[in-house]
C-alpha cells in the first residue's frame, strides 16, 4: 500500500529543497563559527571610524595593535586550556615574572638569547606545576591557579623589590622582539596561525578537544589525558612569558606591576567572546584573535571618543554575557562538525 511513498532511509539525505545561492553562502559563512565575531569587529571599526576620523590612522592602529597583542598571545594558551576543561588564572602574573627571569639571568652573565629561553622554560615549568597540582593532585585548576596567581605575584614583587628595571637590550634580540610599531602584533598573528593549525590539524589539537569533550572516553580510547592537560598548562605558561618579554622589550622597562590579573582576564575574555566555551570540548584560536580585536577596538574607540574606563568595563561585561548566551543557545542551530 504505502510502499511507494516510503523512501529507503538512506535516500533522505540531500532531498530537501535547496535555498537560493545567496542564502546558502550566507549560511555557509555563518557556519564558520569565527565569522560572526569578525563581523562584530568590522561593524565596530566602521562605527568608530565614522564617529571619529582619528580611528583608522597609522598611529591609532599601532596603539590598537599593541593593546591586543599580549592578551591574544596569552589567549592562545587559555583557549587550549579551556578546550581541555581547565583554566589558568596565573598567566597574567607569569607575564610580569618572565622578563624579570630574563633580566636576572642576563645580569648573571648569561647571553640575552639564552636568558630569554631560560625565562620561557621557567614559565613553562610554572605551567607544568599548575598542571601537576590540577591534574595529578586533583585540585580544580581554578583554585590551583588562583593560588599560584598570588604566589607568583608575590615572588615577582619580592625579587624586584617592587621597582621596575630597564629591559636588557642587544641588537639582534631586540630587533626580533620588536621595539618598533607593529612587531608585537606580527608575533601575535603568527602565533595565532600556528596554534590554529595545531588545534585543527594535529593529534595534539584533536586530543585536546577530545579530553575536554569526554575525559573518560578519551582515556578509554588510550589518550594520555594527563599529558595533554599538563602540556597545555606548560604551553600557556610559556606563551604568557613570551607575551611579557615582548611587552617589556617594546616598552624598554620591566615592571613588576605589568600585566597581572587584568591581563589574564582580558585574555580569557578574548577567548570567550571569540567563541570558546568554558565548559570544554570546543573552541577556536582564530576566534580568540577576533575576540581580542573586538575588545581592543572597544577600548581604543571609546578612548578616542572620550568615553571613560567605567563605561568600557560595562561594555566588556555585556559583551562577555552576550557572547556566552550566543555561544550556548545559537551555536546548536548551526550545522557543526566542520573541522
Amino acid at each position: 500500500m504505502s510502499a511507494h511513498i516510503q523512501k529507503p532511509a538512506q535516500a533522505d539525505a540531500g532531498a530537501k529543497p535547496r535555498p537560493n545561492i545567496g542564502t546558502r553562502s550566507l549560511r555557509g559563512f555563518l557556519r564558520v563559527r569565527e565569522a560572526s565575531i569578525l563581523v562584530v569587529a568590522i561593524l565596530l571599526i566602521i562605527y568608530f571610524e565614522s564617529s571619529n576620523s582619528n580611528f583608522l590612522t597609522r598611529a591609532n592602529l599601532q596603539t590598537l595593535s599593541q593593546f591586543i597583542s599580549a592578551p591574544v598571545i596569552i589567549a592562545c594558551g587559555e583557549i587550549m586550556l579551556l578546550i581541555c576543561g581547565e583554566i589558568d588564572l596565573s598567566a597574567g602574573m607569569v607575564f610580569a615574572l618572565a622578563p624579570f627571569i630574563m633580566y636576572f639571568a642576563h645580569n648573571a652573565g648569561i647571553p640575552l638569547i639564552v636568558a630569554f629561553f631560560l625565562a620561557l622554560i621557567g614559565c613553562g615549568a610554572i605551567g607544568l606545576f599548575n598542571g601537576f597540582v590540577s591534574v595529578k593532585l586533583r585540585v580544580p585548576s581554578f583554585v590551583t591557579t588562583l593560588g599560584t596567581m598570588f604566589l607568583i605575584n608575590g615572588f615577582t614583587l619580592t625579587i624586584s623589590a617592587g621597582f621596575p628595571v630597564d629591559t636588557p637590550t642587544n641588537g639582534l634580540f631586540t630587533f626580533l622582539m620588536g621595539n618598533s610599531g607593529f612587531q608585537e602584533i606580527i608575533w601575535a598573528v603568527v602565533i595565532v596561525l600556528v596554534m590554529h593549525g595545531a588545534l585543527r590539524n594535529t593529534r595534539w589539537g584533536l586530543h585536546t578537544i577530545s579530553v575536554g569533550g569526554n575525559l573518560i572516553g578519551s582515556a578509554e580510547s588510550g589518550i594520555n589525558v594527563t599529558r595533554i592537560k599538563m602540556g597545555n598548562f606548560a604551553l600557556t605558561g610559556a606563551l604568557a612569558g613570551l607575551a611579557g618579554i615582548l611587552e617589556a622589550s617594546r616598552i624598554g622597562s620591566t615592571d613588576p606591576l605589568a600585566g597581572g590579573s587584568p591581563m589574564m582576564f582580558l585574555a580569557v575574555a578574548a577567548a570567550v567572546i571569540g567563541g570558546t566555551s568554558l565548559m570544554g570540548g570546543t573552541g577556536t584560536i582564530i576566534g580568540g584573535l577576533f575576540g581580542g580585536l573586538v575588545l581592543g577596538v572597544l577600548q581604543d574607540g571609546f578612548t578616542i571618543d572620550g568615553i571613560n574606563a567605567f563605561t568600557f568595563n560595562i561594555i566588556i561585561g555585556a559583551a562577555i554575557l552576550i557572547a556566552m548566551v550566543f555561544n550556548i543557545h545559537f551555536a546548536r542551530l548551526r550545522t557543526r562538525g566542520r573541522f
Partner: peptide, 25 residues
C-alpha cells in the same frame, strides 16, 4: 573494545571519533 559508555566525543565529527587516538597522518 566498544565500551558501554561508547567513549565518543560529542563535539567532534563522526570521522574524527572513528579514528580517535589512531589518526592517520
Amino acid at each position: 573494545c566498544v565500551y558501554q559508555d561508547l567513549a565518543l566525543v560529542p563535539s567532534l565529527s563522526i570521522y574524527h571519533n572513528m579514528f580517535l587516538n589512531r589518526e592517520p597522518l
